[in-house]
Design a protein around this nucleic acid. Sequence first.
DNA 1: AAGAGTTTCAACCGCCGTTCA
DNA 2: GTGAACGGCGGTTGAAACTCT
Length: 266
Amino acid sequence: MARTPCCDKTGLKKGAWTEEEDRILVSYIQTHGHRNWRALPKLAGLQRCGKSCRLRWMNYLRPDIKRGNFSEEEEQAIIYLHKTLGNRWSSIAARLPGRTDNEIKNVWHTYLKKKAFHIVEKKASSEGKSSWSEGDLATSSLSSREISSSPSITVDYSATTQDEFIWDNRIQGLEIANGVCIDELPMSGWADSAVTQGEFIWDNRIQGLETANGVFIDELPMAGSVDSAGFPSDFQTSSFLSEDDDMDFWIRILKDTVDMSATLAS
DNA sequence: AAGAGTTTCAACCGCCGTTCA
DNA sequence: GTGAACGGCGGTTGAAACTCT
C-alpha cells in the first residue's frame, strides 16, 4: 500500500520562509502552543505543511536557539560526542544547549569531520602509523583527553526536573573517563522480563544489575546543568576502555554508576 | 569584472517508532 | 490487536554566498 503523504501538498508553499511567515508562526505558537503540527498551519493561516512549520520553529525560530559560530568548547564537545554517539545528531544536540541537530549535522559535515580526522591522523602519526582512513575515526580509541589537552565540555542534561537534581562532576567524569554517555547505554532490547535478582546471565546482566540495586539505570540522577570543570581532581581518568571489553565494559560502567548514585543520594 | 568552482546551511524527503482510536 | 496519524530523526538537496582564477 502506498504511503500516505504527511499532508496534502497541493497549494502549499515550499522553500525559504519569509519574515511575514516567521512572524505569523511565532505569534501563533506564542499564543496557542504547538500541540498539533499538522493542524497548525491551517489554524495559523500559513500555506505550509505541518512538518515545515515544525522544522522552521525547532531549527530557527525557537527563542532558546543560540545563533552564531560554534565556540572551541562546543566543537570539542561535538567531536567527543560524535565519537561516543555516532551520527545521532539529536542526542548530541540535547547535550549542547541552544544548538539544533540540523546545525550540528551541518557543522560536522562542513568542517568538524575534517578536524576530527586531523586529530586521528595526528594520533596515528605519533603512533608510527603511516596512513589512516575514514574508518579510523570510528574505531580509534580517541578519548576526550586526545581531543583537547584540557577538556572543558559544557553539557546540559536538562531532561529531568531540578528537584531531582543530584549531580556533581563525578558522573560527567565517569562518562569522560570511559568515553561514553551514561544515558545512551544499550539497555533496551537486551532485558529479559523474567530476570530476577541472582539470575545474571549474559544477555540480562544489565537488568539484573538494575533489579539487584532497585534502580532503573536510565532514571539515575544525572540530569541538570553541568559546569565545565571537566575532570574532577579526585576522579580516575586513565581508564579508557577498548571496544573489545564489550559487555564487561558496560557492566563496569553501570556498576560504577549505581555505586556513585547511591553515594550521592546518601 | 566576471565566470567557474566550492562551501554553507536552510529546507525537504522519506523512514521509523510511538500513540491513539 | 490493528492500522492510521503523527512527531521525530538522519540523509540529502539545492540555492545563496563566498572564494578563486
